[in-house]
């Protein structure tokens, strides 16, 4: 009896702490939505008009048509997916080797790959800017994609190694007996079995690439090539108090795609993050 009363108190306390915390995380997004749906007149009413009396979609219409945000969205989709696919394609064979083969220097190499992830993008981008310029890759999506791939590789190698570790070897051995070569075994047996892990690595890369700002900001100065992160940054610099509702709409357009992907595939993503975390 005492025990259950105590846990009821505990439950009440849990909620008492959880509700303000949830509000802290929710309110900024609610506010963004509220502003994006308002007319300019209602924007000036501030918090008094959290729920707009005359909600409008005109802001979204204007941002998507006149603001060029459809193009920016497309650029973001292109860069995010190409970068993610490239990172997974490069990392997968290496992760397989780390998972299945034993060779000299393996632990050092794996730690090295973990370590380079800690190097600031700035250190790398400063010299790379000159190389990209000389190679004619500045201002191109090809050059930008290469940088997205390299930014994604370290995390992806580790994620996929954990995934391959979880695939039983017996099936590969059976495939070997059937005369399949090592690379064929990897492509036709291991990869399909590891599909959920590969998919979550891909999605995680897409989400990280969608947030990427520094690389495209440095690489691309032509408006038509910008991904949405760079576009909203410049849009924010060009807007003023009378166009706050447009900036809010643009911001929401930038945020919603990854939010949808995330909420829909939360279990996969959380699984990937925690698998990496527990293994260290």
């Amino acid at each position: 009896m005492i025990q259950s009363r105590r846990s009821r108190w505990g439950n009440a306390l849990t909620y008492a702490a959880a509700i303000p915390l949830a509000a802290f995380f929710l309110i900024p997004v609610i506010w963004l939505l509220s502003l994006a749906l308002r007319t300019p007149a209602e924007v000036f009413l501030g918090a008094a008009r959290l729920v707009p009396e005359e909600p409008t979609l005109a802001n979204f219409r204007q941002v998507l048509t006149d603001g060029g945000f459809r193009l920016y969205l497309w650029n973001s989709v292109k860069l995010a997916f190409l970068g993610a696919a490239g990172a997974v394609a490069c990392a997968a064979p290496a992760s397989y080797a780390f998972s299945r083969m034993s060779f000299r220097g393996k632990p050092a190499l794996m730690m090295g790959i973990l370590a380079v992830q800690m190097v600031s993008g700035l250190v790398i981008l400063i010299p790379l800017y000159r190389w990209m310029d000389r190679l004619g890759l500045l201002e191109t999506h090809a050059g930008t994609t290469l940088l997205y791939v390299s930014a994604g590789i370290p995390v992806t190698v580790w994620l996929l190694k954990t995934t391959f570790d979880g695939v039983p070897r017996e099936l590969e051995e059976a495939a070997a007996i059937d005369g399949l070569g090592r690379f064929e075994t990897f492509l036709r047996i291991t990869l399909p079995l590891a599909a959920p892990g590969v998919a979550s690595a891909l999605i995680l890369n897409v989400i990280l690439n969608w947030s990427q700002f520094l690389i495209p900001f440095v690489m691309l100065s032509e408006t038509a090539k910008w991904p949405i992160s760079v576009a909203i940054f410049n849009y924010a610099g060009a807007t003023n108090a009378t166009t706050t509702q447009l900036l809010a709409a643009a911001c929401l357009v930038a945020v919603v795609p990854t939010l949808i992907i995330f909420v829909a595939l939360q279990r996969l993503i959380v699984g990937a993050l925690t698998a990496g975390a527990v293994k260290g």
Binding site: A22, F25, V29, I207, S211, I228, S229, I232, A254, T258
Partner: peptide, 12 residues
């Protein structure tokens, strides 16, 4: 809710 904030790009 907490994780959703993480998905939002830093610029946004």
């Amino acid at each position: 809710l907490v994780l959703a904030a993480w998905v939002i790009p830093g610029i946004a």
